[in-house]
């Protein structure tokens, strides 16, 4: 029998071998879809611990990257047992690096952490044209739109993108993230929130749902 608490803690401790051993043993017992969903939830609980430890200064960005990898790996093992069922999606986030900027490390960390928190994330990549953001937002109607950027010029690109989204009647909450974002930049861009910290970004997103 899988001890969900042990699984949560092992993931929180980023003990890869332990997490994978637990899950392989578990899937070898041909678990029901419901049990598998509980295991997914336990892993997500582990990611929440990772987020907390990050905020407390116990973990750093490198640990977040590894945590994202570990979660993907864990879900991969559980997938066959999940059948067609999927864990509850708490909301949809449209995510991309704004036009003119080719960086994606921060965006990817935010993606894996918000997926772990139960969001469905549609990642449209880097150097995303304004029209692409607008078209995709109209298509999938996300509750939240996340824009990422590392260069200072990204702030202007964010503003242009936000303006176009608003003009197109998209009413999703908008969060911007990355090295150059500040409170002032957030106001200038017209976003609803800003962060330079992926874990905090996920929290803000959760509060919006």
């Amino acid at each position: 029998m899988l001890d969900l608490k042990v699984l949560t803690l092992a993931l929180g401790d980023l003990e890869e071998d332990q997490v994978m051993d637990l899950l392989r043993e578990f899937t070898a017992t041909n678990p029901s879809e419901g049990d598998a969903l509980e295991a997914v939830a336990a892993c997500q609980g582990g990611m929440a611990i990772v987020g907390e430890l990050f905020e407390q200064g116990e973990y750093f960005v490198g640990d977040l990257i590894f945590a994202g990898e570990l979660l993907t790996e864990a879900i991969g093992v559980l997938k066959p047992a999940l059948g067609g069922g999927a864990s509850a999606v708490i909301g949809t986030i449209l995510l991309g690096t704004v036009h003119g900027d080719l960086h994606d490390i921060g965006k990817n960390i935010f993606r894996s952490m918000s997926e772990a928190a139960g969001f469905e994330v549609v990642d449209i990549g880097i150097d995303v044209a304004i029209e692409e953001f607008v078209a995709k937002a109209q298509e999938i109607k996300p509750q939240i739109i996340g824009m990422s950027g590392v260069l200072t010029l990204a702030i202007d690109s964010m503003k242009e993108t936000v303006d176009a989204l608003k003009a197109a009647g998209v009413d999703a909450k908008i969060i911007i993230g990355g090295n150059p974002v500040t409170k002032d930049a957030c106001a200038y861009v017209g976003a609803d929130a800003f962060t330079t910290n992926a874990a905090e970004g996920v929290k803000i997103s959760q509060d919006w749902i």
């Binding site: 036009h99 003119g100 900027d101 080719l102 960086h103 994606d104 490390i105 880097i126 150097d127 260069l151 010029l153």
Partner: peptide, 13 residues
């Protein structure tokens, strides 16, 4: 190192 549309060289991972 790739150029953005404005010609500035950026460093993707």
């Amino acid at each position: 190192f790739k150029m953005g549309a404005d010609g500035f060289l950026q460093h993707p991972e």
